[in-house]
């Protein structure tokens, strides 16, 4: 997964992400991610797994004057209920569908992506794969563990009333997909492949 990303793979990924009603953005490193998040809110939630793996994200946010919530207490849902902005790190992006594979075993990780209004999904350009089978390989290699992985494709939506499409239902209203274009060394510290 550390091979150089073919430019047309990234283009296709970007096109699918946009079609899924997400916002697509390429960033050089986490500093830019933090600036993006801080531009929307003074309170930002970070998935506990991300906070643990990359403590610098929290530091960067706090340095920018943002209050950071990491829901790792007894009642994580209460900690992030309706938080305006949340950041998660995706394991991979899938160009075929514009999906982000997010692994979120602990409740704290899950509530972040479920209860926020704007979800920022960060993925390394080198972790973008061509087809859904790439995600299948990831899952098969781990035998389904650690236990909860989601392919997320755009903000939540429904068409249950007269087939009229409404974006932003029970999950996030806005999703920003930020692709780390790999020059920043911290962008790949979490890579385990």
């Amino acid at each position: 997964m550390n091979t150089t990303t073919a430019p047309n793979l990234l283009q296709r990924f970007a096109a699918r992400v946009t079609e899924a009603s997400s916002t697509y953005l390429e960033v050089a490193g986490w500093q830019q991610v933090v600036e993006h998040a801080g531009g929307y809110s003074e309170v930002v939630a970070i998935a506990p797994s991300l906070a643990a793996a990359q403590p610098e994200v929290r530091e960067l946010l706090e340095a920018a004057g943002v209050r950071v919530v990491v829901p790792d207490g007894d009642d994580p849902a209460a900690e992030v209920a309706d938080v305006p902005v949340a950041i998660v790190r995706a394991e991979m992006g899938v160009a075929e569908s514009g999906s982000l594979l997010v692994s979120e075993h602990a409740l704290g990780d899950r509530v972040v992506t479920m209860l926020c209004h704007r979800l920022i999904q960060v993925v390394a350009a080198s972790d973008i794969v061509d087809r859904l089978e790439g995600a299948a390989e990831w899952l098969a290699a781990r035998n389904g563990q650690p236990g909860f992985a989601s392919l997320m494709t755009g903000p939540s939506r429904t068409a249950d009333i007269e087939r009229s499409l409404t974006i932003g239902v029970q999950g996030p209203d806005e999703v920003d997909v930020l692709v780390l274009t790999a020059t920043d060394p911290t962008a790949t510290t979490e890579d385990d492949a």
Partner: peptide, 12 residues
């Protein structure tokens, strides 16, 4: 594709 395609393996 739907917005969420979740793979759930065992309880959290």
């Amino acid at each position: 594709i739907t917005v969420y395609t979740n793979f759930v393996t065992g309880p959290r």
